[in-house]
Design a protein around this nucleic acid. Structure first.
Lengths: 207, 207
DNA sequence: CGATACCAAGCAAGCGCTTGGTTTGTAAAC
DNA sequence: GTTTACAAACCAAGCGCTTGCTTGGTATCG
């Protein structure tokens, strides 16, 4: 009984070997690692915790990864790759600046609070635990991601629809959106992702 | 040669024993601890690091604090106490909603990026490392702080000047403002704290 | 057969914290 | 004005435990 993941973007990234299949041993470990890293933090999470989460011995981890840090880096790199592709697809759907921004906000909120939310939180809050060289590698990927945002925001600014500077606005949005992971609980609150997106747009005066 | 700290709010808190004097042994340790916790994270910071930062042996730390976590908690509790007092004073200066909010934004940005910045960052990003009971204690203090924000934002919402819900707006601001610590570099950029405050107000459509 | 995936055991290092004892500051007793 | 008393502040050493990671060997499977 094989379940095919319905997301074509994820599928093509897996085919290109840019992202691990969540059904594979490596993929399952990375998912569990992201969850543990978010819940307890990278340092508090031991290799024994990670191994137990996928039902193997701690030593067996090092058959798949050379170091614990390599696991953190893999979580981050694969998460950026996936989300850059998702954001690209979302942005390409619209030409209008306001609609484009709305799609980006909505997609990032979905990444942060949905299935890849654990990994996104790790990406935002655990970069200090990366070594210098890994950090540089991750930052390079992040720049591509950020360019998607900046071009959309610049488009709005040129049309006179943005109150503040595009760079500043993006940085404010980065903080504001990633912070939602600490308080947004769609299952309880009643506020849907679309509703939350509306609120963000309203806050920016783009309702 | 005694130097008197010019901040009267800090002085009165020290007098009431709610905050440690930064010149005292305890105060100096808490300052160093905040810096180390922010730079390396709580878990990566060892008691040996903390002791070395103030020039004593690691064991001697436990003459002042019973556990390492007690140091983290003290950093957080004293930081909230100080900043609640600072925010209260800032808010009391203005009656007009927009001016009141501007004062709050400006004061919080100053806390985050100024002298107490290390401690503020710890407050935001290291709460996971607190034990359950310490967390409850810190949250209680935080609620008082948050009420200052909410009353100002409600005032604006009642006047129809706020695009989004006050609660949501505050949460977005929490994320956005605390995130500035990762990118805002006044000494290099040229953007002053007042300028940054202007940008935040402009983003909210309250320029 | 050979490669891949794993287990069982444990090592060296680093961790938070404890211990017993020494120095230092202060103030009363003589 | 020296002596005695005592607590606060600190040191030197190290204990018990956990950490990331290694090692040598064993299943599993194409």
């Amino acid at each position: 009984m094989t379940l095919v993941n319905p997301n074509p973007i994820l599928q093509s990234l897996i085919a290109e070997q840019l992202v691990s299949d969540p059904a594979s041993a490596r993929g399952r470990l990375l998912n569990e690692a992201a969850r543990l890293f978010r819940d307890k933090g990278y340092e508090r999470t031991t290799v024994r915790d990670l191994a137990a989460a996928v039902g193997i011995q701690s030593g067996s981890l090092f058959h798949h990864f050379r170091t614990k840090e390599e696991i953190l880096k893999a979580v981050m790199v694969e998460t950026i790759r996936l989300n850059t592709a998702l954001m690209q697809a979302a942005a390409d759907q619209f030409a209008d600046g306001k609609e484009k921004l709305r799609a980006l906000v909505r997609t990032e909120l979905e990444s942060i609070n949905g299935q890849t939310g654990e990994a996104m939180a790790v990406l935002v809050y655990e970069w200090r635990s990366l070594s210098e060289s890994s950090r540089a590698e991750v930052l390079e990927l992040r720049d591509i991601y950020e360019d998607l945002w900046l071009s959309a925001l610049r488009q709005l600014a040129d049309a006179g629809q943005l109150g503040a500077d595009p760079f500043i606005t993006r940085r404010m949005l980065t903080g504001a959106l990633s912070w939602t992971v600490t308080w947004y609980r769609p299952e309880r609150g009643g506020l849907s992702l679309d509703g939350l997106t509306d609120q963000v747009m309203a806050m920016l005066g783009l309702a």
